[in-house]
Nucleic acid binder design. Structure first.
Lengths: 285, 285
DNA sequence: ATTAGTTACGCATATCGTAACGATG
DNA sequence: CATCGTTACGATATGCGTAACTAAT
């Protein structure tokens, strides 16, 4: 039977041209590789090399053998990787969320319910989250409301999880500070500071306030500093903890639109034998 | 690195359910297979089995590993077979001929020109011969005349090789015995003895003499006996040696049609670097 | 008591590296 | 004479089978 270690030496010989070079690259002695090539010829049962007294080269059959060897080695490596990935997936619960806030509650709950599983979460826009849940790329999805009919298979379960309401946050001397509540229509045209990793809130703001510009900050510290030092409005929600240190005397004004009052929903594959029952229990309070 | 021998043991375990059974089937001791499974888990780096004190079974990851293992083993075997087949093809000149007679001259000539090559020949009808030469399934083809325009790629060479003329052979008291030569039209309606492996002659006879019946004999001895003991006409050609023992006092009458006077042509791929030059020399006298 | 799996132990052999050799340009 | 490939030889370790052990049915 073939031996992958031997095939690797064959492949190295093909790559480097001489047995000596190949041996050096593989950190083995040169006689070893000589013997391996002889063994390979025995195993294949046909000549693979043209030999002269101090020269050896692949013949046509040998070239063929090399191409098969390379393929086999590649397949073998991929197999190992795939098995490792599969094992990893068996011990990982993957969550795709449309916003950060739901994760703050969801991840601790999952960690509690599945103490020996690894949790892996990511925040993406709605479309990507939908993709993930449909492709099975994630086990749990968090979406802002019930997905439209036909967007996900019927076997998937959808349960309300928590609410979040959007608000703007402005310094007391800002013109908006007088409002008790404010609509997107009014806000449209103002420029805002916007933190990254906001998920679907990001998309929604751009959609509802097309005339506004959003000054996206990828760095958390920069964002906080700008909130303190500028009078630019920013966004907060009723779920995020409100840090006095950062917001100072800024005033919070709820956004009045229905679109700003979100009920996050959990979506998961109801036919998954391993997780569906546990998820049903977790989310059917 | 993975080892195919180990994967074979894994596959056997998956197939037979217990280590003992697998060990027995593979003619190895049972502790050996235990150790191999342990090594495999190390190599994959993840658990593949559920173990209790005297029981071991594949877990889900293990099932995955098995399916990859089976695939790899299959691929490896196929690779060896393919390399062997390739080597064989390198030492074999394959000839497809539309009739037996050309082979009687062609094979000795090839054997002479390529003393260390194996010759492999087969007789088929014209269409199959054309298929073989186009697909590269044969290196040399023998066809009855020049193939029609477009039937073979332009890069193929076509050279006249030898002539063969069809004749019928009847007992002296047969009504046909009076003819000096005879046309298919006259022959049409008579029934004939026909040996197998006649290649295209077979097809031609059926085409030119649709009203005739052909009593096909697969066995050479039976054929000869029937020629001796019956008065049924049969076919001979000017190339086949005429054995008095068999034909006795039968009379040979050439078939007058042009279609019965064949010039066999050799066809081969003119772009084949290895053989085209040698073939050109052989057939361009 | 039988069957299955793991561990312990000793041996055979496979495989490696060093060294020596042969050939070639 | 430097480089490359093959062969010889001795050390090592890898891997096997036997035997002994444990647990479960």
């Amino acid at each position: 039977m073939l031996n992958l270690l031997e095939l690797e030496q064959l492949s190295a010989f093909a790559e480097y041209g001489t047995l000596s070079k190949a041996a050096e690259k593989l950190n083995i002695s040169q006689p070893t590789i000589t013997r391996t090539m002889q063994r390979l010829e025995e195993e294949f049962g046909v000549p693979l090399f043209e030999r002269s007294k101090n020269h050896i080269a692949l013949n046509e059959t040998g070239e063929q053998a090399v191409s098969y060897a390379v393929q086999l080695l590649k397949d073998a490596k991929e197999a190992v990787d795939a098995v490792r990935a599969f094992d990893r997936s068996r011990h990982t619960i993957t969550v795709s969320s449309c916003a950060p806030a739901p994760l703050w509650r969801l991840l601790p709950a999952l960690s509690d319910a599945f103490p020996d599983m690894t949790l892996s979460s990511s925040i993406k826009n709605n479309a990507s989250v939908l993709e993930d849940v449909k492709s099975g790329h994630c086990l749990l999805a968090v979406l802002p409301g019930i997905p439209e009919e036909g967007k996900i298979p019927e076997t998937y379960c959808c349960r309300p999880f928590m609410k979040e309401n959007l608000a703007v946050c402005v310094p007391p001397d800002h013109v908006l500070a007088w409002y008790k509540e404010v609509s997107f229509e009014v806000l449209n045209g103002y420029n805002f500071l916007l933190g990254t990793r906001l998920g679907f809130w990001d998309d929604m703001c751009r959609e509802k306030m097309p005339a506004s510009r959003f000054l996206v900050q990828t760095d958390q510290f920069t964002m906080e500093e700008l909130i303190r030092e500028s009078s630019l409005p920013c966004f907060v929600t009723d779920v995020a903890e409100y840090d006095e240190e950062i917001y100072g005397d800024r005033i919070v004004i709820p956004v009045s639109d229905q679109a700003a009052k979100i009920t996050f929903h959990i979506v998961y594959n109801g036919t998954d034998k391993k997780y569906a029952p546990a998820f049903a229990q977790l989310f059917n309070f």
